[in-house]
């Protein structure tokens, strides 16, 4: 972008090119969201299992770490440009498949962050397939915020498959679905996780116990409301044709 706009603004060239500008923008813009998401993944892999009294599943931890290392693979920005002319259909389809490929390590991440605390819970009274979930340390707002973030991120991730799809993308293009997707993933899951991390990190840094517990609960609850009660319906409303709002 700077190589095009600065020379143009200085009068060194006659104009710009929207298609090239958009392509370079999404080449950069799509991976930028992962700069926010990666610290969240690191916390889900390392901090949350320890807070839940369990260890991360060993082998999958390393697969997840490698996934984090290669997260710059998330550069498949052409799925933002499925409706742009001037880019070959084959290359768009290539990016669609590569975006789908990201879903497999995401499934590993989901399995790992769920199975790690779940593996330990039966020893602490949580029996059955789901009962361990109630035995998580919900009194710790740091855990609460991050587990709620994981739950909402699952919906955001599944919704991302629609964005990546070469055909379904056209249905949700420029509708509130896109807004709902980004608010579920970055606006809710990442933000809630960052809040949860600081509920743990700031007291550790300062060596002092954190302040008013009920406020932290309110923060986590409002995040759940935001993601679950507004952004999920937002994606539903989009299926009725609700456009992106101004």
């Amino acid at each position: 972008m700077l190589l095009m706009l600065i020379p143009w603004s200085l009068g060194w060239q006659r104009g710009t090119d929207p298609l090239l500008a958009r392509t370079l923008f999404w080449f950069t813009g799509h991976p930028i969201v992962y700069f926010w998401l990666l610290p969240t993944y690191v916390s889900w892999y390392t901090l949350v299992p320890r807070q839940a009294g369990a260890n991360c599943l060993a082998t999958l931890w390393h697969v997840g770490r490698s996934f984090s290392s290669c997260s710059c693979l998330h550069r498949w920005g052409l799925h933002h440009q499925f409706t742009d002319p001037g880019i070959g259909q084959g290359w768009k389809l290539t990016h669609a498949f590569l975006t789908f490929a990201v879903f497999f390590p995401s499934l590993l991440t989901f399995f790992n962050v769920v199975a790690s605390p779940g593996k330990r819970r039966p020893a602490r009274g949580g029996r059955g397939l789901l009962a361990w979930f109630a035995k998580l340390p919900w009194s710790d707002p740091s855990v609460t915020a991050q587990v709620l973030a994981m739950l909402l991120f699952a919906f955001g991730g599944i919704g991302g498959l629609v964005n990546a799809s070469y055909s379904l993308n056209l249905v949700v293009h420029n509708t509130a679905y896109i807004v709902g997707h980004f608010h579920l993933t970055v606006g809710t899951a990442v933000t809630l996780s960052f809040m949860g991390i600081t509920y743990w990190f700031v007291p550790v840094l300062r060596g002092r116990v954190s302040g008013v517990r009920v406020w932290r609960w309110f923060r986590a609850g409002s995040g759940l409301w935001h993601g679950g009660c507004f952004r999920l319906p937002c994606m539903t409303w989009a299926s009725w044709g609700m456009p992106r709002a101004r």
């Binding site: 060596g207 116990v209 302040g211």
Partner: peptide, 9 residues
Amino acid sequence: TCVASHAQH
């Protein structure tokens, strides 16, 4: 937490 809490973490 930073300025008013006195309980040790």
